[in-house]
Simulated scan of single mutants.
Amino acid sequence: MGTITAEQTNIYDFLGINEDPLYKKLEDLKEGEMLLLGETLVRKNSHGLYELETRTQHEQAKDVIEFYKKILNC
């Protein structure tokens, strides 16, 4: 018998991430700028890396799309 799995989607899975206001904000971040998303701090550091920081995790990515996906899975 096969395994059934469910995956949560959002409207931007259909419209495209370029239409997502969050993605647009990330893409517009300049080096040294930061955003606060609830209790999650997001910044683009002086090396051009995107950083995500919460009380329990600190992650980074060099690519905005990879970083966007990390935030969605946070």
Rank of each mutant, 00 (worst) to 15 (best):
A61V: 00
I65K: 14
K24C: 03
R43I: 01
K24H: 07
L15M: 11
Q60P: 03
E7P: 00
K69R: 12
M34Y: 06
A61D: 04
E33K: 05
L52R: 09
N10P: 00
Y68T: 01
T5S: 13
Y12T: 10
K30C: 06
P21I: 01
E27D: 12
I11Q: 15
E27N: 12
N73L: 04
T5I: 04
L36D: 13
G38V: 01
C74K: 05
K70R: 09
L52D: 14
N10D: 15
I17S: 15
C74G: 09
E33P: 03
A6H: 04
L26R: 00
L52V: 13
T54E: 05
P21R: 06
F14V: 10
Q57D: 10
Y23H: 13
N73A: 12
K30V: 08
A6N: 07
S46A: 08
L22V: 03
S46N: 05
L35E: 15
K25M: 10
T5E: 10
E53L: 03
M34S: 15
M1C: 04
C74Q: 07
H58A: 09
Y68F: 09
L29C: 11
Y68A: 12
L36T: 12
A61T: 02
T54C: 08
Q60Y: 03
E39F: 03
T56M: 05
N10H: 08
Y68D: 02
T40G: 05
R43E: 10
D13E: 07
K70S: 14
P21W: 01
T9Q: 08
L15R: 11
K44Q: 10
H58P: 02
L52N: 13
E31D: 14
I17L: 08
T5M: 06
R43H: 08
A61K: 04
S46K: 06
Y50W: 04
V64Q: 10
T54V: 03
D63F: 01
Q60N: 12
Y23F: 10
Q60K: 08
L72F: 05
E66Y: 02
R43C: 09
A6W: 01
R55I: 02
T5D: 11
L15F: 09
L35A: 13
Q57T: 11
Y68L: 05
R43N: 13
F14G: 15
A6C: 06
R43M: 11
Q57P: 05
H58W: 02
T9R: 07
N18I: 00
T56R: 06
L35P: 00
Q60T: 12
D28E: 06
Y23I: 00
P21M: 02
